[in-house]
Computed example of a mutant assay.
Amino acid sequence: MISELANRIFDQVIADYHIHDAIDHPIENPYDSSSLEHLLYLKCWIDTAQWHMEDVIRNPEIEPREGLYWKRRIDRQNQERTDMVEYIDGYYLQKFNGIIPNVDARVNTESPAWAIDRLSILALKIYHMAQETIRTDVSHAHIESCEGKLNVLLDQRKDLSTSIDELLADIAAGRKYMKVYKQMKMYNDPNLNPILYGVKK
């Protein structure tokens, strides 16, 4: 099952990241560059670094210049995240290239890779919520609240994992088909963002 593989790799990435707990620590992807495992590891590493960038920028005492620096890094990171999702969808488009959909096949509300993207973010939420449950500098009420939230997140991961596996099985059997739309983000494109092409003139 792809969800079992993805969840295992995502947990591995988050553990690897927190060995050094540094946004700019070089990624050491242990998987062959041609494998799905490599893509999943890289995907979650991008998400994990961005998670911590988002923490940094929310410091209420951050200097404006530093805040702008992190905002721009988050923009670049988010573009990498989107590119990686589309790359994973490309993997699945190739994998299912020979499948002929049934005449009554339906398209899913999201592609496999965007569902896997949500699974990666859930892994991060689960890790960090679990960390909140073992803090010693907070009230018992805080611990109880976080334990409740953690249980919801774990249940959500179980349901999403099942949905991803079922989606891929449906595509393989021709019951559903993939239709991938590029995100076409406009704000990073110097030809589409009026601020950017206005400055360029």
Rank of each mutant, 00 (worst) to 15 (best):
Y31Q: 01
P112G: 03
H20F: 12
K71W: 09
D189R: 01
V152M: 13
K179M: 11
D155L: 07
I46G: 02
S35Q: 10
I14E: 03
K185A: 10
M186R: 10
N108M: 08
N188Y: 15
E86D: 14
L93I: 13
L124T: 01
Y127P: 03
D189W: 03
D83H: 09
I164F: 03
I2D: 02
F10G: 00
S111C: 12
N188P: 01
E28A: 14
G148W: 09
K125G: 03
K149V: 05
D32N: 14
N151E: 09
M184W: 09
W45E: 02
N102Y: 10
G98P: 00
T162Y: 07
R81Y: 14
I23T: 09
R135T: 08
Q131R: 10
D155R: 05
R106L: 11
E144L: 15
D47F: 12
R135S: 12
K71N: 05
S139D: 09
D83S: 10
P60Q: 07
L39V: 02
N78C: 08
W51G: 02
E132C: 08
I57L: 07
T133D: 01
K176M: 14
E144N: 13
G98K: 15
I74C: 06
R106M: 12
Y181I: 08
W51F: 15
P194C: 06
Y87T: 13
D104C: 04
N97Y: 14
N191V: 10
I9K: 03
H142D: 15
W114M: 03
Y31T: 07
H128N: 14
D16W: 10
Y187C: 01
H52T: 01
R157M: 13
F96P: 03
R58I: 01
P194F: 06
R81K: 08
C146E: 09
M186C: 08
N102M: 09
P190V: 03
V13H: 05
D83V: 04
E147K: 12
L36I: 06
N188H: 13
W45N: 02
D83C: 05
I74L: 08
E28T: 09
I46F: 04
D55T: 05
Y87M: 09
D75F: 14
Q94G: 08
M178H: 14
I134V: 15
Q94M: 12
Q131Y: 07
K43V: 00
I19W: 03
K176P: 02
V85A: 06
R81C: 05
A6N: 04
W45G: 00
L192M: 13
G174R: 11
Y127G: 00
H38D: 06
D159A: 11
D159N: 11
